[in-house]
């Protein structure tokens, strides 16, 4: 068992070995999603005039429509802020995987990404069928979370077979 832990640990990327391509891709998508969520959170608190959006809806920006809808908040907390917290959680899980417990960190990363993916799918459903407007920034984050769910799942499962 201990003989297998070695190679599995090294695959985390950052625990003393060169980062693998999978981890690099995960970090890239996490950073893109983090920046996206940070921007939407900033816009929520500082005014929609800062919101750059390509779509038009009912004579105004479709992003404004989505961001000002009742689905943009969860019990008073902006969904964008929840997304931002999720991305911070992902970074923390990568650190845990690299420094504390590789398996726990990888499992946590997959769990966080999966929760984010599920909720972003629900919000996309609301955009299409309830609000009838699409926010490109929200779709961007949904795409990042979809990719991250797949990548973190592969990372977790691949590490499990690394020693064999």
């Amino acid at each position: 068992m201990s003989a297998m832990a070695g190679p599995a640990e090294h695959q985390v990327g950052g625990a003393g070995s060169r980062p693998d391509r999978l981890m690099l891709a995960i970090l890239i998508f996490t950073t893109i999603g983090f920046a996206d969520a940070a921007y939407l959170t900033y816009v929520h608190y500082h005014g929609f005039s800062a919101l750059a959006c390509f779509g038009a809806h009912s004579g105004h920006s479709s992003c404004q429509t989505v961001q000002s809808s009742q689905w943009s908040e969860l019990d008073g907390v902006p969904v964008a802020l929840l997304g931002l917290i999720g991305y911070v959680g992902l970074y923390v899980s990568y650190l845990v995987a690299a420094r504390v417990n590789a398996e726990l960190g990888r499992a946590a990363a997959f769990g966080i990404a999966l929760i984010g993916f599920g909720f972003s799918m629900y919000l996309t459903y609301r955009e299409i069928f309830t609000i009838h407007a699409i926010c490109e920034w929200c779709v961007g984050s949904a795409v990042c979370l979809t990719v991250l769910t797949v990548l973190t799942a592969v990372r977790y499962l691949r590490a499990g077979t690394a020693g064999t």
């Binding site: 499992a107 997959f110 929760i115 499962l157 590490a159 499990g160």
Partner: peptide
């Protein structure tokens, strides 16, 4: 290795179950 694979798959399923409940 087989035991570890089984355990990882169990944890993987558990994570999915928890995530579904949270969602």
């Amino acid at each position: 290795a087989k035991a570890q694979r089984t355990r990882r798959l169990q944890v993987f399923g558990g994570v999915i179950a928890i995530a579904v409940v949270v969602i």
